[in-house]
Computed example of a mutant assay.
Amino acid sequence: MFYRPEDGHGLPHNPFNAVVSPRPIGWISTRGAAGDNLAPYSFFNAVAYVPPQVMFASTSAKPDRDGTKDSVAQARESGVFCVNIVEYAARDVMNASSGAHPAGTDEFGVAGVAKAECDTIECPRVADAPASLECRVGRIVQLPGDANFTVFGEVTGVHLRDDCIRDGRFDVMAFGPMARLGYMDYTRVENLFSLTRPDV
């Protein structure tokens, strides 16, 4: 099968986001004039080591947020955001926080997620996340298409949960990170193997 996106794929559901998988989930927390917000984004990744930088992208809009969603609007307003890493044990509360609630709704409360304050930025974080990355917005890029925005941020503070540090390493097997597979499908990281690069 081959298709050009502008012509359509002819399938019952769009295959694109299932092809690009698995994708890590950035559980983005923000604070703005309307209050605190928490929402998961599977268009998320790390993009640089030094200084450490990450991105998340939002691809839809709410009528009360001027062409985008709460996370982008509040990151633009405050200049900061926090990425919280999602573990398998938090799958249900993460999903509960993904609803399209009116601006000003605190998804921490809606989903029953414990909240803590960040250290380097004025922003909430998920208190018991395996890791949280405090970020200052570097730039927000509007992409082609309606409501497509990518938010880049420089990491200014890193929280690592103590039980996830083993033998001097952040051990992802300690908590089983979740990833998005497309459609309504997710996966849990359960197998790990190492490869030595040829130039090491």
Rank of each mutant, 00 (worst) to 15 (best):
E122Y: 00
S132N: 13
S132P: 03
S132F: 03
S132V: 07
A131W: 01
V110S: 09
H101V: 00
A131Y: 05
C123M: 06
E107Q: 13
F108Y: 06
E107A: 09
R125Y: 03
T105Q: 08
C118T: 13
V113H: 03
V113W: 02
A111I: 09
A111F: 05
E134H: 07
G112T: 07
G104T: 10
L133E: 03
G109V: 02
D106M: 04
I121H: 01
C135M: 04
P102L: 03
V126N: 05
P102N: 01
A131N: 08
A129D: 10
C135R: 07
V110Q: 07
A131V: 12
F108N: 05
P102M: 04
D106T: 02
A131D: 07
V110T: 14
A116E: 14
A111W: 03
A116L: 06
E117N: 15
E107W: 08
A131H: 09
E107I: 13
V113G: 07
E134I: 05
E134P: 13
P102A: 13
K115D: 02
C135G: 02
V126C: 11
K115F: 02
T105M: 10
V126F: 09
V113F: 10
D128L: 10
A103F: 01
D106H: 04
E117D: 15
P130A: 13
C123Q: 12
V113N: 07
S132R: 11
G112N: 04
E117C: 10
E117K: 15
C118S: 14
A103C: 02
E122A: 15
I121W: 00
C118V: 03
G109H: 04
C135L: 03
G112Q: 06
A131E: 07
C118I: 02
F108W: 10
C123I: 08
S132H: 11
A129Q: 12
E107S: 12
F108M: 08
C135V: 02
E117I: 01
G112W: 04
E122V: 14
A129P: 04
A116W: 06
P102G: 01
A114T: 12
C118F: 02
G104N: 10
H101S: 00
V126H: 09
G112P: 11
P102R: 07
P102S: 02
V110R: 08
H101T: 05
D128M: 03
E134S: 11
K115V: 14
A114F: 01
